[in-house]
Amino acid sequence: MYKIAVDVMGSDDAPVCELSGIKLALEELTHIKVIAFGKKEEIEAYGLKHERLEYVYTDDKIIGTDDATTAFRLKKSASMIMAIQAVKDKKADAVVSAGNTGAYITAGLFMLGRIKGIRRPALATLFPTATKGKYFVFADLGAVVDATPEILNQTGIVGTQLAKIMLNIEHPKVGLLNIGEEDKKGTTLYVETNKLLRENHKVDFIGNIEPRYIMDGRANVIVADGFTGNIALKSYEGMQQTITTVLKREIMKSFGTKIGGLLIKPALKELKATLDYEGIGGAVLAGVKSPLIKAHGTTTSFQFSSAIKIATTFLEKDLVGEITKVLEKDTDK
């Protein structure tokens, strides 16, 4: 039975959202146990009990405005830190949190350590394409903002293993996010990364991909540095929210547009189902020694349960072991 350590104090609606998500996950996954970390009075107010749920009460929590390094150093009794510590102490197999991203990545990296051979872990998630139900692995989304070509080249290797596990694709195609398709396009970082990826026998590199084409399904893995990847992710989120707001406003303008809105409602539902990545649940810090899943800060209970499922999938398919084997082969050579 897999044990998942969960920080229940991280989301905007903590701990209600996390506890509701835990309930959903426990109902669906009968082979996991959850160890929930959080403040006693807030947890008891929710009243969730389950034979495969254990609580560890904490005195503190890390909030969104906390400095990452300071929080890691000074808030040792925070729910997030104690959840990661449980994995480090082998009391749990994976950890899930919707809390402060910087603090979570910093604590996870220093407490769990990197897989041997990993230069810098990457934050990766599944992202939708224009085809309903088809996704690609997007990395890095913010873990390494000062990447080198060697780091991005390795992100391509890690992303390939993620695609094999999460998408069940034997030979994933890898693309490099860039401002143009030509090999010499972009900054020195991207030109040199392109060269390394073309020489890398561990990835099936198909070349540069412009941002407007990342969702057309041509690549199963998109590689970017953490700064660029995070901007791309947030731009997508902002555009999605803007389109939704404008559509609602225009549909409600008059009786005629309301009728039109009713007529296209099925198509709009399909559009949302195709392009909405929120159901994925979260991102994984790929490259640390145990699965570390970062759920959205604005997560819903369904999304949080999905994050727990992702952690379970990585344990079942031994993500850490698969990445380790690939890197060991390179080291042996």
Rank of each mutant, 00 (worst) to 15 (best):
T131V: 07
H201P: 00
A14I: 09
S235I: 08
I115W: 13
V203K: 02
F37H: 06
G108M: 13
G282L: 11
D140V: 03
A283R: 03
G281I: 12
V56C: 04
L247E: 03
K90L: 15
E51K: 15
D318M: 13
A139V: 08
E150V: 12
I206W: 09
D13P: 00
L315R: 14
L167I: 12
I231L: 01
D60F: 14
V326M: 14
S235N: 14
L152D: 02
E192T: 05
E316H: 09
E54T: 13
L126A: 03
T70A: 01
I4A: 04
D140L: 05
D276L: 05
E322S: 08
P211I: 15
E237L: 03
A307G: 03
D12K: 12
L29N: 07
Q85T: 06
A103S: 09
Y57M: 02
A273D: 14
G281Y: 11
G159K: 02
E250L: 11
M9L: 03
L112Q: 12
E170I: 07
L48T: 13
A143G: 09
E27P: 00
K265T: 10
F72N: 01
L29F: 13
I84M: 07
D140C: 13
K272W: 05
F205R: 02
A311R: 12
V87L: 04
T313E: 12
I62V: 15
I206Y: 06
A147Q: 12
T58W: 06
G238D: 10
F227Y: 10
L262G: 00
F205V: 07
D93L: 05
L196F: 12
E18G: 04
A286G: 06
I157A: 04
A283I: 11
G260S: 02
I264M: 10
K248T: 09
K33V: 01
D93T: 14
N200K: 10
G297M: 15
I308F: 11
F255V: 09
S301N: 05
F72I: 02
F136C: 01
E192I: 12
K325W: 08
V284H: 03
G321A: 15
R218K: 15
L19G: 00
I231C: 13
E328N: 10
D7W: 09
G99N: 06
G156T: 14
V284D: 00
V96K: 11
T299I: 07
L263K: 05
G47N: 09
Y104K: 05
A71T: 06
I308M: 01
E28I: 09
G156F: 08
I43E: 02
G10T: 08
L126S: 04
G133W: 13
G229L: 09
Y135L: 04
D146C: 10
G99V: 14
A130Q: 13
Q85M: 09
L109F: 14
S79G: 02
L268M: 14
K269Q: 06
